[in-house]
């Protein structure tokens, strides 16, 4: 006669005994078989789990509070939120009248990690370099999980209202702004109209 024996599978948590599995040898075999069957049935139909980043983005996006000067576009539709574009058209400041597109790339571990943001429009700006890198503190060293997509968009709008020549990413633009704001304003206008500033050609963004 086969001796049936049982091994119970428990674990301890916070002084509380939690029952995990109790199985005898046959039951364990049956469990394994059943799992194989389940796997065969489920094969191909199992939906991909949503990452915490996507779940949090759903919240951020449904609560977006965009200014008139801002618009957002999801090239992959409402169910793929991790990549999108934000377009900012400042209605004041040096860049008034221009339209600047930023790409957002959000990682599955958002908001543990900040989104990667780049400026897709070539822009003459002390805090944005000609490759589209953006120097905004909350995108790097000052990112906190309590911040949101909304906070980043505010930050980007602020960059256009108040370019900061003290922490430059485009040194030439920063120097001009510091020494001669009127020349800076003229340079910005020329760049937005599709002109050449400092030997660099800027496609029109008006």
């Amino acid at each position: 006669m086969i001796k049936l024996f049982s091994v119970k599978f428990y674990c301890y948590c916070a002084d509380k005994c939690v029952f995990l599995y109790a199985y005898d040898r046959d039951a364990l075999l049956t469990l394994q078989e059943k799992q194989k069957e389940d796997a065969a049935v489920a094969n191909g139909t199992a939906k991909a789990k949503q990452s915490p980043g996507e779940l949090r983005l759903q919240k951020d996006i449904s609560e977006l509070n965009l200014a008139r000067t801002t618009s957002i576009r999801f090239p992959n539709g409402k169910d793929k939120l991790l990549q999108f574009e934000v377009s900012i058209s400042p209605d004041e400041g040096y860049h008034k009248g221009g339209s600047f597109v930023f790409s957002f790339d959000v990682s599955p571990s958002y908001p543990h990690e900040a989104p990667k943001v780049k400026c897709m429009t070539k822009v003459y700006h002390p805090n944005i370099d000609l490759d589209g890198n953006v120097c905004l503190n909350i995108l790097r060293e000052d990112w906190k999980p309590v911040l949101s997509i909304n906070s980043i968009i505010y930050g980007l709008q602020f960059l256009f209202m108040d370019p900061n020549p003290d922490d430059p990413l485009n040194r030439d633009a920063a120097d001009v702004l510091q020494k001669d704001p009127r020349t800076f304003a003229a340079n910005v206008r020329r760049s937005m109209q599709g002109g050449v500033v400092g030997g660099v050609h800027f496609p029109s963004c008006i």
């Binding site: 939690v18 543990h112 990690e113 370099d129 120097c135 790097r140 060293e141 990112w143 990413l169 040194r171």
Partner: peptide, 26 residues
């Protein structure tokens, strides 16, 4: 469902130190 999962204690992982881009540039 019994003990905390990774997400429950995500705060245990310190964020990567990142330098300001303008510091790097200037």
């Amino acid at each position: 469902s019994v003990t905390p999962c990774f997400q429950c204690t995500m705060w245990l992982f310190p964020p990567q130190t990142k330098f300001p881009l303008c510091t790097l540039a200037e």
